[in-house]
Design a protein around this nucleic acid. Sequence first.
DNA 1: CCAGGGTGAGACATTCATGTCTCACTTGGT
DNA 2: ACCAAGTGAGACATGAATGTCTCACCCTGG
Lengths: 192, 192
Amino acid sequence: MSHLVYDRLMVVDRNQVLRSAAALLSRKATATMDEVARAAGIGRATLHRQFAGRDALVRALEALGLEELEQAHDRARLDEGPEDEAVRRLIAEVEPVAPLLSFLVTENQLFEGDERNEGWERIDARIVALFRRGQENGVFRIDLTPAWLSEAFYGLIGSGAWAVHDGRVAAKDFQYMIAELLLGGARRSVEK
Amino acid sequence: MSHLVYDRLMVVDRNQVLRSAAALLSRKATATMDEVARAAGIGRATLHRQFAGRDALVRALEALGLEELEQAHDRARLDEGPEDEAVRRLIAEVEPVAPLLSFLVTENQLFEGDERNEGWERIDARIVALFRRGQENGVFRIDLTPAWLSEAFYGLIGSGAWAVHDGRVAAKDFQYMIAELLLGGARRSVEK
DNA sequence: CCAGGGTGAGACATTCATGTCTCACTTGGT
DNA sequence: ACCAAGTGAGACATGAATGTCTCACCCTGG
């Protein structure tokens, strides 16, 4: 029981540190451990006590990102209703995680298969399944593979996050821009 | 006249070094100067003679990438014919530069406005103009801003390059997948 | 009031990439 | 055959980030 007290008062809130680290590293991926510590309002030593090293910190961020991504997928209820609507819901739910996500993606490129977290494949499987189901139900075209649609989905999320980040797209248009491009494409359509 | 002889035989071919560096760094962005040198088949000292430092090397790669990008835009003849066809041509021409491009993009994120090369804006202006013209001619939808379409274009190019890189998409499908998604979207359409 | 655990600050050693320099060697030109 | 230029290899210094450790301080609980 004493744990609960410690976690909230005197002791550094590990999760809070992670949030602040995510916010910082999403903007400046090369931030040093010292900068991360300062951003979290703690000392570098304390940061090291919580995370053995920079690698451990990134791993923890990966776990955090994956957890939030999974929750986003859960909330989006991908297996309910029309698949294109499910995609829209997913975009909306994923938006808050987008900056952290793009940081992790570029960071993961460097791990080069050292020990890739299985969580990514789980996430990927869920969205691949969504696109596949949409194809079977005649909602999505069948000439674009689910794997590619999944890749493009996260690519557009990242692009959208950056576009918003440096003011090329208004934050309020984030979901619409991504959803419309992904679902409808750029070409002018007769329907709708 | 003696320069031509030097450039081809004894002296290191600077452009050749750049190519090999581009190929290596596109796969492993954190490669050392030593690794870059080895990959080019030269000594580290010689690499430093050609490029004052890692920063200079990246700048040179940026110049190379921008030059090839501009040439790709030229060859795509963006101001001729229907705009959607122009986009297809552009995708085809940009494909070879895609890996280097995605390296430069992630690398540029770190420069944080120190001295961003103006070339990017020139390139961007060209493709923005293409999308804008397509909108005026009724080929592209007007509810997606040209700035976003441009961002999405390069985002998808990058995603496609990575998808091909780790075998999620066949290389021969690169152009088709990107063009179809960007132009037509994922939703099944009545036409076509 | 006292004891203990957690913290911030700073000193310190270590590691690694970078950048500089020297030197012997090879190659091409004269 | 000689000379000059460019090169590779290696030694060396530098700087930066990392990781470890100590120590004084503060807060909380007893």
